[in-house]
Write a protein that binds this DNA or RNA. Sequence first.
DNA 1: ATACCGACTTAGAATATGGTAA
DNA 2: TTACCATATTCTAAGTCGGTAT
Length: 718
Amino acid sequence: MLLFSHLDSHKHKDKHKDREHRHKEHKKDKEKDREKSKHSNRSIVVQVPPHSGPSSFRSLVIQIPRHSSRLGLLEIGLNLNHSEHKDSEKKHKEKEKTKHKDGSSEKHKDKHKDRDKEKRKEEKVQNFPVEKEEIKASGDAKIKKEKENGFSSPPRIKDEPEDDGYFAPPKEDIKPLKRPRDEDEWEEERYPEGIKWKFLEHKGPVFAPPYEPLPENVKFYYDGKVMKLSPKAEEVATFFAKMLDHEYTTKEIFRKNFFKDWRKEMTNEEKNIITSLSKCDFTQMSQYFKAQTEARKQMSKEEKLENEKLLKEYGFCVMDNHRERIANFKIEPPGLFRGRGNHPKMGMLKRRIMPEDIIINCSKDAKVPSPPPGHKWKEVRHDNKVTWLVSWTENIQGSIKYIMLNPSSRIKGEKDWQKYETARRLKKCVDKIRNQYREDWKSKEMKVRQRAVALYFIDKLALRAGNEKEEGETADTVGCCSLRVEHINLHPELDGQEYVVEFDFLGKDSIRYYNKVPVEKRTGILNKHLQDLMEGLTAKVFRTYNASITLQQQLKELTAPDENIPAKILSYNRANRAVAILCNHQRAPPKTFEKSMMNLQSKIDAKKEQLADARRDLKSAKADAKVLKDAKTKKVVESKKKAVQRLEEQLMKLEVQATDREENKQIALGTSKLNYLDPRITVAWCKKWGVPIEKIYNKTQREKFAWAIDMADEDYEF
DNA sequence: ATACCGACTTAGAATATGGTAA
DNA sequence: TTACCATATTCTAAGTCGGTAT
């Protein structure tokens, strides 16, 4: 699906440029087609089976069901009655509630068959974040203060990452699906309504190093003449110089925005002289920085040491009873804004963040971090309804930036877990929802029909919700609910198929269809509807659900029991790839792709040659053995055989690697792996087939998914 | 209602790292 | 030992979504 690669430019103001862009896109498409043809199981035009989720992933074109007409997916008659469904849902919810209210007594009287499961679940849930003794310890948290590490922190802080007991889940049955209700309930036990922590202490952010003026010998030229810039103007100039090799600096908008902001930093004299960016010569600066980068590489050892020190000092905080890794404790340095796509603000100056911009968040009983000497914080607050430690307002969009915890932290892990549990609940009712939205296509109410079509796209194509965004503030991009007429084409018949909807955000070769587009305008309404269908259901849950279920399906389908580990890993990657394609996680083909493929190929060739040699040796050894028949020659034969085997294996490994890399040329696996695939599916698969988890998850990923690694056994079902 | 904003997740590019070939 | 490359990590932009102000 190319939907997202087209999002950048559908404003057709500049015709020439646009054509250029389209051309590029087209080329991309062709490349994709080529790749597609390698995998015959994927087709360009997708048919929608009556009751299914995503079936094919590379589709640009989707066939819509027979009963929809060209004049709108919406012109579908009939009435629809939700009430039955809604009522039953409501009843269900009610039941849940009462269950929870008197939960304690219920344990004794409940004859429900799920009872034991429920109980186990509860235990598990309590175990998840902290071990029992730690829970007990939390009571003294506030009393003990001023520890040697400078934190006035509670006792028994766990150094989490190495500690595999951290998430201490039960080893027993994990199959019963938890309803998030349970998690909420448990959350409520520990943290009533929205409370995220009780104790939070940290050292504050690390600021960007101050600007160091350029050495005298590095010159800036204006209109061919040397010019010494004032420190402020010089600093901003260096931001541009550092990007000189980048395509950005050739873009009109980028240059215009940069120049405007740069001039603001100039002295009056400078402003008078420097009136045109094209007369500026930054090449010496640029070269100087390149040399600096080189030099820094040489002393990377000292640099590393320094970084480690910084990490140790500022990279951790204490949240409740745990010492937790902080994700981004360094404040973003000043520079030029690099928006993605056709961003109207690219090139603008991202100003330096000062302590006076910073809001510190920590608990009242924590030691407040001290601002750098001579400075003070904008504010210190104690808001335990949020998870961030530090925030500031950025000057490009005026949005707030945060310092938060690492994915390995308890607070992030729990949330992640919860996310997949919600997706699993969707699994239980997805058929019902699919039937309903198909019914809703026939509704006489336009809004209902629109909503149903939007939902269908979200489910079928894993589209994002598509919130409204401020025009002119960001690049013009769309999602499901913000699709515009120019992004869609309906064909009663195309390439031999009937009723085809063509999504083409660039609209290159398509004819415009000037009619109302069958999509919901306001996502709020959509999400409200989803909430009625299932508690906690929002548009993005479909992405999570469809991604995870696809991984599970694909793994089942692709894993051949007898194949060796490298082949299994290829199968895993292919399953992962199916998901990445579904979610449209693309990447620019690596700059060195061709070369690296060639390298690999020559390795393969070399290996083949070795193998041929080894086989020849084996043959002659066998011949010798036939004649001589002594123990020594037999041994030789054996060792030659082994050598051949070893080489065969190595060759196979290389070939698998080549296939994998080729298939992965413009697909990014990381995003789905990190954000959409229930890690327990992967853990279970690894256990089932004896694939070491390290082959699939690197260190960081293992840390992030520690909860799942502990939790899932080989029978886990999403 | 709608607009707006705050908090949080998701995302690909840029950069650093560390192992291996030369 | 260095150059090179693949992979891991960092960086921060750009989404989603729900709550609150208008």
